Computed example of a mutant assay.
Amino acid sequence: MSPIRLAIVGLGKIARDQHLPALAATPGIELVAVASRNAALDGVAHFATLAELLASGEAIDAVALCTPPQGRRELAEMALRAGKHVILEKPPGATVSELAPLVAAAQETGRTLFATWHSRFAPAVEPARAFLAEAAPRAVTITWKEDVRVWHPGQRWIWEPGGLGVFDPGINALSILTRILPLPVFVTGADLAFPANCASPIAATLDLADAGGLAVHADLDFLQTGPQTWDIAVETDRGTLVLSKGGALLSLDGQPLDLPPEAEYASIYAHFVQLVAEGRSDVDLAPLQLVADAFLLARRTIVAPFHD
């Protein structure tokens, strides 16, 4: 089978840091074009916009949308209607309701739509899921704190409506949570802190539960300095399971467990190749729904303005 010919739309930090190396390491797919107003790659066909790329006749089979979530729905719709498979960076959109029409469009056109949650491909996630299928969880604590100035320097879109603010990293924790727990969870309360000059929160605390009464507490912060913290601790009847460093490490009662090496984005592309081969889509909206529910239930406070 010939490799999937992929175009990246939006050649920003995440595309350069993660997508390009993963593509180079994944059999069955190759980068043949870039659509970006502000960046290009030597030796790769370049276009300013997706519309320009599709109108050009350049031979592509799929697109990876690495643009900010605002406006991504229109790009995905355009690509699907042009007969292209689509990868959506996380979060898959700026709203929950805009995704159902895209799923329908993928079904109508017979194309694959893949809403990626890269943290679900961290090496600790599937072992944790298997453990929790046998061990009864009693409580979950999420501590997800990072420095926005390090990971999103100068990216003003993240503070605009639909940019998610601290939920841009926080949704990674929620994507792991919804993958590893045996039962679905729902939001029971939230506190969101909005900088005076921003439309998205810079910090958040969430309380969640499942139908069995499991309590989940999440503490999210976008102003962490020094060491970054991406931990999920699950107290169970068989000990405390901790996924740390975003799921790169796993321990039980403080004892490290053996894991395969990290390969989140390479695993995303390997999964996409398989989805295309099988004619399937993969669009799980549970993490984005939890964020939307947090905004619905939240108590809001205004804090000091944020400046890069």
Rank of each mutant, 00 (worst) to 15 (best):
R156Q: 11
G162Y: 13
D147Y: 05
F194G: 04
I176K: 14
I176R: 13
E160S: 12
L174I: 02
A204N: 10
L192N: 01
N172K: 15
A211L: 08
V185P: 09
L181C: 14
G189S: 08
V166W: 00
W159N: 08
I180V: 15
F194S: 04
S200E: 15
L181Y: 14
G170P: 09
D147K: 05
P195K: 08
Q155C: 07
G189Y: 03
P153A: 09
A193M: 05
P169K: 00
C198H: 09
L174N: 00
V150Q: 06
T188M: 00
P153S: 04
V166Q: 01
P201N: 06
W159F: 14
I176A: 06
T205H: 01
G162R: 13
A209G: 04
A190L: 05
R179E: 15
L183P: 00
D191E: 11
R156F: 09
A173R: 00
F167L: 03
L183K: 06
E146W: 00
I158C: 03
G163L: 07
A199Q: 11
T188D: 02
P201L: 06
L206C: 05
P184D: 09
D207R: 12
K145C: 13
E160Y: 06
F167V: 02
A203S: 14
I158S: 07
L177E: 08
A190G: 03
I180A: 11
L206Q: 03
V150N: 05
A203F: 04
A204H: 06
C198V: 02
N172F: 08
